[in-house]
């Protein structure tokens, strides 16, 4: 379908964007890559009066290393992240996850900030940001504030973003020595939203795991930290017994909702499969 009519603005500075958001309030929508927003406008799920295209605002894209932090601009595309050597080196989880997002033509346009603001529970970036303990930099006319990724995703398609706020960047602690990342996802077809996916991270000393993060996508209304399974692996040798304990904990950690294709029980089963594969990948 075609979207209903809207006005269009392409501000050249953040201040201009804030002024437009101020003026139009709820009737304005930010436009980044458009890969979620335009689809929903086409389906007439939303009908904003004005789109504020952030495409011409300087300083919102690019990937930089500052000390021990990888800083990725909100407007950086999925594809730029996928291709970045700095990302592969300092946040391999993101490099592993990127090829799972949609298809190349969509990754060429879709952005990190758009994906986080959208907060689809089956999307890759939100789960990765939680697993990496990233910080989301949010800016408004009042200035900048930083929100931990663990506090950012509030509910289904709902984030900590307030009115008049824009995500400007994401800060990710660079991978440390001995730290391993694994991203795994089950889909019917490459590029689909995950049935179940897992962003995993741990430090490895010999075969002992610590600082374990297991964050699922596709099993709840937000990314879900599997805290029981994380605890079951913490400080343990990555052997069959530890994996079984983590799998048992998963049954208690997750309460997945069935979707039209997959039952809750099937999702729980797939989540157990993924935790075993993730541990193997982390120590492999």
């Amino acid at each position: 379908m075609k979207p209903s009519a809207f006005a269009y603005a392409r501000p050249r500075a953040l201040e201009e964007a804030f002024a437009l958001l101020d003026k139009h309030g709820e009737n304005a929508k930010l436009l980044a890559g458009g890969q979620s927003l335009l689809a929903s406008l086409n389906m007439r799920l939303a009908a904003p009066e004005i789109l504020v295209d952030i495409g011409a605002i300087p300083g919102l894209d690019g990937i930089a290393v500052r000390g021990q932090t990888l800083v990725i601009g909100a407007r950086t595309t999925h594809r730029a992240i996928e291709r970045s050597e700095a990302v592969a080196k300092h946040a391999p989880l993101l490099a592993q996850a990127a090829p799972h997002i949609a298809h190349v033509a969509i990754r060429n346009a879709g952005t990190l900030g758009g994906s986080l603001a959208m907060a689809d529970p089956a999307a890759e970036w939100p789960a990765c940001c939680v697993a990496l303990q990233a910080t989301i930099v949010v800016t408004s006319k009042k200035g900048e504030r930083r929100v931990a990724a663990t506090d950012f995703f509030k509910d289904l398609y709902t984030t900590a973003l307030g009115a008049g706020e824009l995500i400007t960047a994401v800060e990710i602690p660079c991978v440390e020595k001995g730290e391993r990342h694994a991203f795994l996802e089950l889909v019917r077809r490459r590029g689909d939203y995950a049935i179940v996916g897992l962003a995993a991270r741990a430090r490895l000393k010999g075969k002992t795991l610590s600082g374990v993060q297991l964050v699922y996508l596709g099993v709840g209304v937000t990314p879900v930290q599997a805290k029981g399974a994380m605890a079951a692996l913490e400080g343990k040798t990555a052997d069959d017994a530890a994996i079984r304990a983590a799998q048992d904990a998963i049954a208690r950690d997750l309460e997945p909702n069935a979707d039209i294709y997959t039952s809750a029980e099937a999702k729980r089963h797939l989540a157990r499969v993924l935790v075993a594969r993730a541990v193997a990948a982390l120590v492999g």
């Binding site: 379908m1 075609k2 269009y8 392409r10 436009l31 458009g34 890969q35 335009l38 689809a39 086409n42 389906m43 789109l51 295209d53 495409g55 594809r79 949609a102 298809h103 190349v104 033509a105 969509i106 060429n108 346009a109």
Partner: peptide, 26 residues
């Protein structure tokens, strides 16, 4: 017209895009 089929694929600045998920003004 919502990004799933790829029939509308065109190149923008040398890279493939969904023509139905891009505004002409963009």
């Amino acid at each position: 017209e919502h990004g799933v089929c790829g029939a509308c694929t065109v190149r923008v600045d040398g890279e493939i895009r969904r023509g139905c998920l891009t505004l002409a003004v963009q």
